[in-house]
């Protein structure tokens, strides 16, 4: 059994336009992915891909006008989407924890750092304050906060962005989670600090034997800190597999375009303009969601694309994946 298995997740935004006509934005259109114990999976995509929405659905954080249409998210065999709020609360912050994008706003500004780490422990287990405080100091030391005893008494505003992100990582680790979800964990941090934080996060995750789901728009983060990658476009995972394989031999036209768009791979003054508009979730094309901007799309793309297995664990959702690679599988 996989640690986490998301199956055919559909989420729509339902609202009205200026003239009161009903409008449906199809934000997630059948997201499926699995995450094994101890794996680090990068979920990558651009604006409108639905990366963060997938996580929100998973964590039970969907709010109107977002509406869960169908799908399951099995965590250790339990469907998170069918759990009531109380049961979900017992999992969140304990078996599943989260590291979010803006550390400064995710910490309680009027509570000492140490107390916040104590509270998250006491919320899930009957531990004494002294015990929890000791673990808080341990955790802060582990995430590289120098002089942890003293810094535990400090308030969030006394921490820099990078340090606050370390504190969030400490909090995420506090209850020995089996799954850590990191939503753009280093966006907004400087390059040298980003490297420090990612090194720390991935080594601690490995140490604890937990699994990591990283949401990011940064190809480099996935390339260097994940084992597997899932590429999202318009609410669909178009390609997934081991990082080396997907990045080394991208099969789906969108993955190819995305990788070709990194500064390292583009030629100055080259080629025609790229279709850079985010997908219009209110008017997605029939069949393949990428077909209206795909350079190799043809009539067959009007129908639902098949999930093609290319190699062990490497699959792409496309009618036109390279045939020799298909034979390989």
């Amino acid at each position: 059994m996989s640690l986490l298995s998301i199956e055919d997740l559909h989420v729509h935004f339902v609202g009205e336009d200026r003239l009161g006509r009903p409008v449906t934005a199809r934000a997630l259109n059948g997201v499926s992915l699995t995450l094994e114990q101890g794996e680090r999976l990068g979920l990558v995509g651009e604006t409108g891909a639905g990366k963060s929405l997938t996580v929100q659905a998973l964590m039970g954080l969907l709010r109107a006008p977002a509406r869960l249409v169908r799908g399951r998210a099995l965590f250790e065999g339990v469907d998170l989407l069918a759990l009531d709020e109380a049961k979900l609360n017992r999992l969140r912050g304990a078996a599943i924890s989260m590291v979010v994008q803006s550390p400064k706003t995710s910490l309680d500004p009027v509570r000492r750092i140490g107390d916040q780490i104590v509270r998250i422990q006491q919320a899930h287990a009957p531990v004494s304050r002294a015990q929890a405080w000791r673990r808080a100091i341990d955790l802060l030391e582990k995430v590289g906060v120098a002089d942890a005893e003293r810094r535990a008494m400090a308030y969030p505003h006394q921490f820099s962005g990078g340090m606050a992100q370390r504190v969030l990582i400490a909090m995420a680790l506090a209850n020995r989670p089996r799954l850590i979800v990191a939503d753009e964990p280093t966006t907004g941090l400087d390059a040298t600090v980003q490297a420090q934080v990612l090194d720390l996060l991935t080594s601690l995750v490995r140490e604890e034997g937990a699994s990591l789901l990283v949401i990011t728009h940064d190809i480099g983060v996935v390339a260097h800190y994940c084992d597997k990658v899932a590429v999202m476009f318009a609410g669909v995972i178009v390609e997934s597999g081991p990082v080396e394989q997907v990045f080394g031999a991208p099969a789906h036209p969108y993955t190819q375009a995305l990788l070709a768009a990194t500064p390292e791979r583009i030629e100055a003054g080259g080629k025609a303009p790229r279709a850079g508009l985010p997908p219009n979730l209110r008017a997605l094309p029939e069949g393949c969601v990428y077909s209206d901007r795909c350079p190799i799309a043809d009539a067959s793309c009007r129908t639902e694309p098949p999930q093609r297995l290319l190699a062990l664990g490497h699959q792409a959702l496309c009618h036109h994946v390279a045939p020799q690679r298909e034979a390989l599988a």
Binding site: D17, R18, L19, G20, L277, P278, N280, R282, A283
Partner: peptide, 28 residues
């Protein structure tokens, strides 16, 4: 351009006025 389909073309303001008023009466 992606939103062009949903916004009524210019000049139709008067034509859609009754509809707008109905929407207004219902929602506000």
């Amino acid at each position: 351009m992606s939103d062009a389909a949903s916004s009524p073309p210019a000049g139709s303001w008067l034509r859609t006025l009754p509809l707008r008023l109905r929407v207004m009466a219902r929602h506000a």
